[in-house]
Design a binder for these strands. Structure first.
Length: 575
RNA sequence: CUCUCCGUAGCUCAGCUGGUAGAGCAAAUGACUCUUAAUCAUUGGGUCACAGGUUCGAAUCCUGUCGGGGAGACCA
């Protein structure tokens, strides 16, 4: 684990030892009392100088400006930053000035976490600051933080490498304050929605993530295995069927913020695991749900921005209810210029050809219509728009339209050309439901590998009777991208999925090979430094010379590991 | 999966048509008791992602691998 340390990391580890020698615990166990945050000081101090005369505050050292016997430090806590004024004779009132001269100036670094006491004042340059009376190290930082500087709203040397930011999000959060803001807003979005539901008496529930049948959506699942039951289990792709079983069970409204998993491609709008809210409300239909959805989104926008207009890229999106409503057939008429109403599969296939849309024989009527819509319409739906009345083949869980048996009572909400919500008047006819599942089976025989599985327990539940019901699902990650103006899903997930980091395998053999030959772990980096990259090279060496050279190297590098014996080295070479 | 750009010090980046690496910040040492991208002086810090190839000589040219960004294909 401890490979080559950089010069600065080695210096920090030395400082750590010196601190311990001086009797300072770099990682003390006891609590440090904090009685104020930087945000509270900045909010109240300038108007009332009598406040904050005895404060205790903790945070991370972000930058220092040392001028001999006095210094300024920028301290960052969870709410922001404040400047500290550290004066030698203030923190070292007696003869012994080592706390300032040695500990503060030499042994502390940017990145260390400290606690201070003192009082708030305003410097001659007009900056609200803390006059430090005592200072205590709370945690020593051994790694070097990127130092981001700022002047007149211009940022210098920003920590910007996406790979490093996503892999080491903690560093990103420390040095890039706007990143923290995105995630605070994400939490606000979820809280606003939760209040909206709870005020109406709906119940927050939890349903299985490990499912024997991955139902409720069309997607490729992750498969895992349960040892005790000796059965395959799937990570859920949706929770729709379970929530509807709860409506059967007698709840009037249930919702879940669910983590779903889909074993499909990754790009800037798709992560293998993502968060979806699904809500089901008894005795409602999809018209009711449209009203509900637009009110919910308007409220989220207001909660975050205090207005309904939200900046997304170079566009302004207005979440003020009501949103435009358009049937799918009208949308295709408007944007593709063809009328699909009452047309056969062959006629629609011909439309696709005339519009230069690729088709395959396995595509049914529903997929063909969806292809036209996807190619020609979606990109135009910038302002929030409900697209309604989808063809029946695409919606096996959705109630047939009350006035057209070819269609379903379904809507999707499009924002900025992307799908955001999906909702139905839920299908509660168990015979129709089984029939639709069987049609899915036919599709899958035709080669559609994402047709739905049949969940017989769900059909059985419907046979007991489910009230009329409307359900809606909304992608929380996508919603957060819109509401916080982030172009990539990776920017709204703390830890987006990444390929595993491989430590650059040094030329020659891996550590394991050296260990297998009997070399103690601590000596492996030494051998590499000495020039042995592989076990084979090691075996070719003269054990006596090795003993001498390695002993010398141990002294030179001041290594804190036991000296080697000739027999040990002979064992490696002959192993 | 395809195309494309990228990978150099802890961070942000230079490095030309090939000649064994530079800057700013950060760090070390020193000066400085109201600075704020603090300032001034001195110094150290590199497996140029990895592996091959071409060449007298490769950070640079070529091939492959790994990792990342972007675009597309596929996909809700």
């Amino acid at each position: 684990m401890i490979t080559e340390l950089s010069e600065q990391e080695a210096i920090r580890r030395e400082s750590l030892k010196e601190l311990e020698k001086a009797g300072i615990n770099p990682y003390p166990a006891e609590a440090f009392e904090v009685n104020v945050t930087t945000a509270e000081i900045h909010a109240a101090f300038p108007s009332d100088n009598s406040l904050f005369q005895e404060i205790s505050i903790a945070g991370r050292i972000m930058t220092r400006r040392i001028m001999g016997a006095a210094s300024f430090v920028d301290l960052q806590d969870s709410t922001g930053r404040i400047q500290l004024y550290v004066k030698r004779d203030e923190i070292c009132p007696g003869e012994d000035k080592s706390l300032y001269n040695t500990v503060f100036k030499r042994l502390l670094d940017i990145g260390d976490i400290i606690g201070v006491t003192g009082y708030v004042f305003i410097t001659q340059m007009g900056e609200t600051s803390i006059h430090v009376k005592s200072l205590k190290l709370l945690s020593k930082s051994l790694r070097v933080l990127p130092v981001v500087k700022e002047k007149d709203d211009q940022v210098f040397d920003a920590f910007s490498d996406p790979e490093a930011r996503y892999r080491q999000r903690y560093v990103d959060l420390i040095v890039n304050p706007e990143v923290r803001e995105v995630f605070i807003k994400r939490s606000q979005i979820i809280n606003t929605m939760r209040s909206f539901f709870n005020e109406r008496g709906y119940l927050e529930v939890e349903t299985p993530i490990l499912q024997p049948i991955p139902g409720g959506a069309a997607a490729r699942p992750f498969i895992t295995h349960h040892n005790a039951l000796d059965i395959p289990l799937y990570l859920r792709i949706a929770n729709e069927l379970y929530l509807k079983k709860l409506i059967v069970g007698g709840f009037d409204g249930v919702y879940e913020f669910a983590r779903d998993f889909r074993n499909e491609g990754m790009d800037r709008t798709h992560n293998p695991e993502f968060t979806v809210l699904e809500i089901y409300v008894a005795y409602k239909d999809y018209f009711w749900m449209m009203d509900f959805t637009e009110q919910m989104l308007e409220r989220v926008a207001l909660a975050l921005h205090a207005k309904t207009a939200v900046q997304v890229g170079d566009r302004t999106i207005d979440f003020k209810a009501p949103f435009r409503r358009l049937t799918m057939s009208d949308a295709i008429k408007e944007y593709a210029g063809v009328d699909i109403a009452g047309k056969t599969e062959d006629e629609i296939r011909a439309f696709c050809k005339s519009l230069n849309i690729e088709t395959t024989p396995s595509m049914g009527k529903g997929k063909l219509i969806d292809a036209i819509f996807g190619e020609k319409c979606e990109e135009h739906l910038v302002q929030p728009t409900f697209i309604t009345d989808y063809p029946i083949e695409m919606s096996p869980l959705c109630k047939r339209h009350r006035s057209d048996p070819e269609l379903t009572e379904r809507f999707e909400l499009f924002v900025n050309g992307k799908e955001l919500c999906n909702a139905y008047s839920e299908l509660n006819d168990p015979i129709d439901q089984l029939d639709r599942f069987q049609q899915q089976l036919e599709l899958s025989k035709k080669g559609d590998d994402e047709a739905m599985f049949i969940d017989m327990d769900f059909v059985r539940a419907l046979e007991y009777g489910m009230p009329t019901c409307s359900g809606m699902g909304i992608g929380i990650d996508r919603l957060t991208m819109f509401m916080t103006n982030q172009p990539s899903i990776q920017d709204v997930l703390f830890f987006p999925q990444m390929r595993p980091e491989k430590k650059a395998t040094p030329a020659g053999d891996a550590d394991e090979a050296f260990l297998a030959a009997g070399v103690p772990e601590a000596w492996i980096p030494v051998l590499r430094k000495y020039g042995f990259k592989s076990v084979a090279e090691l075996k070719a060496a003269n054990p006596n010379k090795l003993l001498n050279d390695l002993g010398g190297l141990r002294k030179k590098m001041k290594l804190d590991i036991p000296a080697l014996k000739l027999e040990e080295i002979q064992a490696w070479v002959s192993a």
